[in-house]
Write a protein that binds this DNA or RNA. Structure first.
Lengths: 185, 185
DNA sequence: ACAGCCATGTAACTCGTTACATGATTAC
DNA sequence: GTAATCATGTAACGAGTTACATGGCTGT
């Protein structure tokens, strides 16, 4: 029973393997600090939906904690959850990354607008890229001290590094696209 | 009337601005050669669904061509379609690209599996990346000759170049991740 | 007192997918 | 003749979103 969950379920389950129990709300925050950069930023409502599913399949266990008046459920991954997750990691076939790049999409149709409009698009993207990069940089900084081989945040740190490199490469490419547009117009 | 279409509608409409009329089938093929690399590869059924929508809003016009026995509808963008598209291009707010990167996601959970399993994941990705890159290279080659400033495929060519650079940057990063994993295990 | 955050959920809806259904043309 | 490709659509479903609904706690 219970084998093929949507990838986002595995992703959220994976965020519960870092040694602490989280509420739905906290899980959403963790997703926003990690998953967002290379997977998705699930809506609050989806986090609760996924947790309900994981609970139903006994991949997580919930502890009600009404002590503080607030209705609070804290979720912990179960042994079965760990087994399921590592089986998935080992056996799932390679899926190629999917990119949804509205900026590239708009550049494709550059012939429909004035060159200045396209340049403005790319300049705006460059700015957004800078902000994003700064956010991810902050995340990586916060992992410092536990990101050496063998330590708990080694892999999150490697992934963050990967993201930073990606943003750097984007900046570089977009800058040369802007140059090319100037020359050719 | 009629303004906010899903982005994929605009994307498909954009593929009809390169001077030729296409059948649904041909449009799908064009999407597979271009959109796939930085947007989506829509299912055949979705292409027809979107075309029906575009038709309903008079953004495309259809010509039935039953002459050859086959039921063939050829679609052409209308003046209204062009207006709608260029308005969208000029006025739509900047959306940041979204990445769905199953490989990065799995790397995040590297602590749950043996190092060899993670290394295998990355090696597999490197191979897939090579194939993808080759496909995109073929596409770019096919644009040669009409990709100079002012020519029809200038922008598609720039976008393809962007994609190639992205794949190169990925290859480079993944190689150094593999090095880091070897050192630290 | 009031705003902002913590906290949990339901309902309606859209996008996009896979599976199904059909049939003609082309190349071997 | 038969397999691959061209060609068009419908139906059922799933993943994920926004909007809605509720309420307590915390800082000023």
């Amino acid at each position: 029973m219970s084998q093929d969950l949507p990838t986002t379920s595995y992703a959220l389950l994976g965020l519960l393997t870092f040694g602490d129990d989280l509420t739905g709300y906290e899980l959403k925050q963790r997703a926003d600090r990690t998953l967002r950069f290379y997977w998705v930023a699930p809506a609050m409502s989806q986090v609760y939906t996924e947790l309900a599913r994981l609970l139903e399949q006994r991949l997580v266990r919930a502890t009600d904690d009404d002590a503080d008046g607030r209705n609070t459920r804290r979720y912990r991954i179960t042994a079965k959850g760990r087994r399921t997750l590592s089986t998935w990691l080992r056996s799932s076939p390679l899926e190629f990354p999917g990119l949804k790049h509205p900026v590239a999409l708009r550049l494709l149709m550059g012939h429909l607008v004035e060159p200045s409009s396209t340049a403005q698009l790319l300049t705006g993207y460059l700015a957004a890229l800078g902000e994003r990069r700064a956010e991810l940089e902050t995340v990586r900084e916060s992992l410092r001290g536990a990101d050496e081989p063998g330590q708990p945040f080694r892999f999150p740190s490697l992934v963050a590094e990967w993201g930073l490199r990606y943003y750097d490469s984007e900046r570089c490419t977009v800058e040369s696209l802007l140059d090319a547009l100037e020359d050719g117009s």
